[in-house]
Write a protein that binds this DNA or RNA. Structure first.
Length: 679
RNA sequence: GGCGGGAUAGCUCAGGUGGUUAGAGCGUCGGAUUCAUAACCCGAAGGUCACGAGUUCAACUCUCGUUCCCGCUACCA
């Protein structure tokens, strides 16, 4: 690897539309913080950048829902997030926000530079426009009926009921959420970043020059590159964001994904107004992006393309992306409140930052998705932090106080067994370093914990409490060595468990905690007075854990209750409007999966006339499509034919939406004549 | 459907340019011990390394196919 002079570490900017949860922490912030603390301990030049991502449509929607301004929303969450990070010990050099003036200026400048270099292409397209509110509608501002599951409140980008991603054109009966009016199509101009033009060098840079990236990262990039890159819009018609800084762009802002990563740079600039460029433009700087797997393509392809298009910036050297953390077997979900929220944890478990840090690292989703359970949290705390680490520290201190009034005793001649023990932890430094350098935080922490295991074993094997009756010199040596191991633990755990390390250093009156001293046995001077033993960690009892589990069960219950509520009835229509619709009864003659389409079933329907073919996107709910053959179903008979996957679909099979979002074809209970009208 | 990642002890995970008895932590069981937050220490049980073929003297490790989980992507009237 190249010898870099300094390291810039960025962490995915949390979206200021909700608080931080353990998934964010495990995937991004805890590993990044460990890495940064480690580099700082080694006295390397490092800058740790964080901040809130505060633009984009979802924030405006939340604001609208609550009847406040977008600024109110981002202020609220920015403060919650910033404060919880601070309390949790994520040691950012700066945690700023994309609504800062520095960011506003820099993002504009970067856009302008790329623009002036001809790095964008301009395209005019038709988009929905709300005539009453006199503005273009972002995908999220349009609701309508989901063509897939029939949910009436699907958004223009996604149906939250069935999870399908949509485009506004897909929606049936689109409606503006701003004024409630029916939007019309209108022409609008936007700027695009032509990723396709960047494909060649990206391919070389990633696939040839960065084979060392994690398999999930490398594979995902390769997948995208092989599919071929498309131009991506970098502007939107919206009033919340950074104005597009060119003529003729009134009412347009930078698309949030364009401005957000620039936040890394502007936050650096805010911190170091005169000195920021060396962290972003010097080839001797190593740039690292810590992110979750949802952000891989963005940080490996899109953002680098932006930086390259601008021309003066360095590219990331590595993008250590983690997978996702589940909670008690289910996906973490902000909207379903299925999460352990950091700010709540900090309140409910005061002074237990390190416990969560430890558990999240021990269980980090480094190679695949992982599960967080409260039982595991309790077990890790009680069986590892308390029983192994805390217990060893306590033993060493208690013994020293008992036999030597709390002063570090002299180290006499070392026995073979002493030397053997020393051998075991001599190379801890090299091992932890090697693991951390390769972003293997889970194993690195385990290696640190191993020191405590060595200590416990040493005490058990040498039994100083027995020797105290006969050979106090020997006891002194044993305890000196034990205390040296304790001091080593304080250093080794410093990146992982900073709060406990500080507490331990206080107990040991240990001032220096230079990483380079790790592995030495002269960290504590003879005669040094130690503080009275104090527990490093305390046990977590069953009732505390049960309360947390109960809290989640309650969430689940209330989620179920809300989902089961039928939706509100749609606005009235006239009888005439209904009569325009031709709903018929038909018998399924044949039903099979459409090849090369996951969701489509192809029906052949006896409609009493010449028969018809209808496609329906319900394949995932009918693993055995043949089961439907012979059943009588209802279908819309007077939709114009539409080609799907090359097949003409002549109508729409009616299905009912279940509480879990799945679909069931509505069937006739009694035999009817094929072709009967439903009136 | 295409592409990518994953599948190894009850649980969480290591592992290897293919080569003697496949590792760790936790949990379980047994033993020892009392300095310690009934903690620590020692020992044991527990795995056809997802499934099926192939290459090979030899495969958990390579190849192909299949299944399941996660993600990206197409499809959803």
């Amino acid at each position: 690897m190249k010898n870099f002079k300094r390291t810039t570490v960025t962490t995915a900017l949390p979206y200021a539309n909700g608080p931080i949860h353990i998934g964010h922490l495990a995937g991004v912030y805890v590993p990044a913080d460990i890495y940064v603390r480690y580099l700082r301990l080694k006295d390397e030049d490092v800058l740790f950048i964080g901040g809130s991502d505060e633009h984009g449509v979802p924030i405006t929607l939340t604001a609208r829902k609550e009847g406040v301004t977008p600024q109110d929303i981002v202020d609220r969450y920015h403060n919650i997030i910033k404060e919880s990070f601070e309390t949790f010990g994520i040691s950012f050099d700066i945690y700023s926000r994309t609504t800062s003036s520095t960011h506003r200026v820099l993002a504009s400048e970067i856009f302008k530079t790329i623009h002036d270099k001809g790095g964008f292409i301009e395209k005019t397209s038709e988009q929905y426009y709300d005539e009453k509110a006199q503005q273009f509608l972002a995908d999220r501002y349009i609701t309508g009926k989901c063509p897939h599951c029939g949910n009436e409140r699907a958004y223009g980008d996604q149906c939250e009921s069935c999870g399908t991603s949509l485009s506004p054109d897909d929606l049936i009966n689109p409606q503006s959420t701003i004024s409630g009016s029916v939007p019309v199509k209108r022409e609008t101009k936007h700027w695009y970043l032509p990723l396709d033009q960047h494909e060649a060098w990206l391919r070389q840079w990633i696939l040839e020059e960065h084979k060392e990236w994690k398999p999930n990262v490398y594979g995902q990039c390769k997948s995208w590159l092989d599919m071929g890159l498309q131009p991506r819009a970098v502007s939107r018609d919206l009033d919340w964001g950074i104005p597009v800084p060119v003529k003729g762009a009134e009412g347009k802002v930078l698309y949030v994904w364009f401005d957000a990563p620039i936040g890394y740079i502007s936050n650096t600039k805010e911190l170091l107004p005169n000195d920021w460029e060396k962290w972003w433009k010097d080839e001797d700087t190593r740039l690292l992006h810590f992110i979750g797997k949802d952000n891989i393509v963005f940080h490996c392809i899109v953002f680098p393309a932006m930086l390259k298009a601008e021309g003066s910036y360095i590219l990331p050297d590595n993008v250590p992306a983690n997978e996702f953390l589940n909670l008690e077997g289910d996906k973490i979900s902000t909207s379903r409140n299925w999460a352990v929220w950091l700010h709540e944890y900090l309140q409910e478990f005061p002074d237990k930052q390190d416990v969560l840090r430890y558990v999240l690292t021990a269980n980090a989703p480094e190679t695949k998705d992982n599960d967080f359970t409260w039982k595991d949290f309790q077990a890790r705390n009680n069986n590892e932090l308390v029983a192994i680490y805390g217990n060893f520290i306590n033993r060493a201190l208690v013994l020293t106080h008992k036999y030597f009034e709390g002063k570090v005793p002299e180290m006499g001649a070392l026995t073979d067994y002493d030397k053997q023990t020393l051998d075991e932890f001599k190379n801890v430094k090299a091992e932890v370093e090697n693991l951390l350098d390769h972003f293997k935080f889970r194993e690195a922490q385990k290696e640190a914990m191993n020191l405590a295991r060595i200590g416990n074993k040493y005490l058990a094997d040498t039994e100083p409490w027995k020797l105290a009756k006969t050979d106090m010199n020997r006891v002194g040596t044993i305890l000196n060595l034990s205390l040296q191991i304790a001091a080593n633990l304080a250093i080794a755990f410093e990146p992982f468990l900073p709060f406990s390390s500080k507490k331990l250093r206080d107990l040991l009156n240990l001032e220096s905690f230079d990483w380079n001293k790790l592995g030495r046995i002269d960290l504590l001077k003879i005669g040094l007075q130690l503080k009275k033993p104090e527990l490093l960690f305390e046990k977590i009892e069953d009732d505390v854990i049960e309360m947390q589990i109960q809290k989640l069960l309650d969430t689940k219950k209330s989620n179920q209750l809300t989902t089961w509520k039928p939706e509100a009835i749609k606005e009235n229509i006239s009888f005439d409007e209904f009569m325009k619709m031709d709903i018929r009864v038909g018998t399924v003659l044949d039903c099979q999966k459409v090849p090369k389409a996951d969701k489509l079933l192809q029906f052949r329907i006896d409609d009493g006339l010449k028969g018809r073919t209808i496609l329906s996107g319900i394949a995932e709910y009918y693993p055995n499509p043949a089961d439907l053959i012979g059943k009588q179903v209802l279908f819309i008979a007077n939709f114009p034919p539409r080609k799907l996957r090359g097949i003409d679909s002549e109508g729409m099979i009616l299905s009912a939406e279940n509480p879990d979002g799945s679909l069931t074809v509505v069937q006739s209970g009694v035999p009817l004549s094929n072709g009967s009208k439903v009136v």
